[in-house]
Design a protein around this nucleic acid. Structure first.
Lengths: 339, 339
DNA sequence: CTTGGCACTCGTCACCTGTGAGTGCCAAGT
DNA sequence: ACTTGGCACTCACAGGTGACGAGTGCCAAG
């Protein structure tokens, strides 16, 4: 009973603060939400909540503001799902269905997510580690310069240039190509190292240096590039907070320019299906201490292949953003399934 | 003589304003640059310059600030080239030489340019219209789902998924592939439409719908995607201007999110080799009215293939940025030449 | 054409003050 | 045992004032 009202107060504080961006006081709280008690009572509850670390006051005698811990409690126990409106769902449908290829899906997704959440959106390309090779190709750009192309079942295409000091024999090239296709098509990326082991023993000793250079390139593709690509959109939303809101945007923009940061943010969505929310200081980066990150995985069938999500100020609309991220992740999964 | 001093005054104003970001007054001007005259004289010159529209005062009794027109004059006639320091040149070298493929060159270039100019950097992928096809490939993802891959002489790889309602005959696929390679390899992109005209007449009537679907995809690649890709970096520098400098960053970020805008900014570098500077309102976009854009083309040999540049506040260091953009464009050209 | 002098403008800053939102605490009420 | 009204207290903020000073335009003399 007592405990319950306190939680209601916390919820009310979070909701008010999110919508007004101003510290919320006891009186205003009673007026706006019809809690059936007086401001004085609320004040007692607030004191208790502050004691426990869920809210704080920016300065003596201002209203209260939720702390990271407060948002955490709100997200975990107090927020109710806020389903998307039918028009929003339809917009998602319509917009994503028009995509013609994977690049298009990714760029449409990021724009869509940024638009409906009005936050910065992140979308990771399907991870190679969780994919299989569909086809592999080797093309000569010049006699001594090859380009290696790997097509993955998600539709992603990887490429890498391989340079030689001497021209490469065309017949050899065709041979290597054929053997690569034979031994790698359909293989999951994870088993590439095993599949190409001893690969060069099938060739004449003179050709082995060339062959192993190619194999090395394949391995590097499989190793280095694994999750490399993330697309970003909606950064303009960061500047929306008129002049110096709790959020300084420069460190955020800096953090978002680092692929490593983006990958880490997206990579830690542990449980598939569920949405992961990282609030304020829970983020592993200094520059993102005033932001929250909402992510979800998408995939083919039950297999998660990558993540997407949004980044915004800690005082974001969690229910709305969670719903949006989840919905978009589901639609993207569906599109991948169709392929 | 008279005219000459006025220009010197304008140059001094631009230089001071760029370095301090504060309106510059007659007294300070005389102190910092050793013009051999008194403040009063300078004031007369300033009045004249203001009359002609090269400078303006933010409010009565504050110093003067250059107008867009003033910067224009400065760039066209008053600025001296500021060559990069040898360490900077070496850094460019070292950094770009490590690139392994085109994607890598592009992303390294944008990071490099952003870092040395401390501005937002833009780099356009080699334009397809100005390139030739090196190789073309057609791979079945599933029996009814093909992926078309076009490799361009600059190392750029384009892809597009083609979907059929019915499975496609493998033999036919191989046939189409061979003919595409035969008729398109080495062709400049511009001549693709001619080269594929009547392409389907060589096939059995039953196969023609399939064949023309593929041809359509090739054409679409050639048409739509022509210049599509631009990479962007260093947006964090926009936020560097501590709180509300003449520049509101939201419209700028919004503009920079539009591919159309980026392409237009980069696409209008008319004369190759030279650097193009667009100042403030000279930009064709509302949101960029407080920014200047410095661009240059890069290419293979004498053939320009695309552009790169930086975007920053109008009070940028023009000589420095021009030198940097030009140097980077040259190095990128050189790298493309080597390939 | 240049220069020193001078009156004038006006933004900035420091300081002050009143106001009001918001708090914590306490004693009385249920 | 919780709730409530009352009350004193704190403190950010807005508005007003005045000193200051940077900078200007104009003018008469050099």
């Amino acid at each position: 009973m007592l405990e319950e009202r306190r939680l209601a107060v916390l919820r009310a504080i979070v909701e008010d603060y999110v919508s007004t961006h101003e510290p919320v006081g006891s009186k205003a709280l009673v007026e706006r939400h019809n809690l059936g008690v007086s401001p004085a009572t609320i004040r007692n509850d607030m004191a208790a909540l502050e004691e426990e670390g869920f809210i704080a006051q920016p300065h003596t005698s201002a209203g209260r503001v939720p702390t990271d811990l407060g948002y955490r409690l709100f997200v975990d126990r107090l927020s109710t799902v806020k389903p998307l409106s039918p028009p929003e769902r339809r917009a998602i449908h319509r917009f994503l269905d028009e995509a013609v290829d994977l690049d298009d899906v990714m760029s449409r997704t990021v724009r869509l997510l940024a638009q409906i959440t009005r936050q910065v959106a992140l979308v990771q390309y399907p991870s190679l580690t969780r994919s299989s090779i569909r086809h592999i190709d080797l093309v000569a750009l010049t006699p001594s310069r090859l380009i290696l192309i790997i097509i993955v079942d998600t539709g992603r295409v990887e490429q890498r240039v391989i340079e030689f000091t001497e021209p490469v024999n065309e017949q050899l090239l065709a041979d290597v190509r054929a053997r690569l296709v034979a031994s790698l098509s359909g293989q999951p990326f994870a088993s590439v190292p095993d599949a190409v082991e001893e690969f060069d023993t099938a060739f004449e000793p003179v050709d082995r240096p060339t062959v192993s250079a190619i194999v090395t390139a394949v391995l590097e593709c499989a190793r280095e590039r694994t999750d490399e690509r993330v697309v970003l959109g909606g950064t303009a939303h960061l500047a929306r907070y008129g002049e110096a809101f709790p959020i300084a945007i420069q460190p955020v923009l800096e953090a978002l320019e680092e692929q490593v940061v983006l990958l880490r943010l997206l990579g830690e969505s542990t449980n598939p299906a569920a949405v992961t929310v990282r609030i304020g200081h829970e983020n592993p980066f200094e520059g993102l201490a005033a932001t929250s990150v909402v992510t979800a995985t998408y995939g083919r069938g039950d297999q998660p292949v990558a993540s997407l999500g949004v980044v915004g100020p800690t005082h974001m609309d969690y229910p709305g953003n969670i719903a949006a991220v989840q919905a978009v992740a589901r639609y993207v999964s569906r599109i991948l399934d169709e392929q």
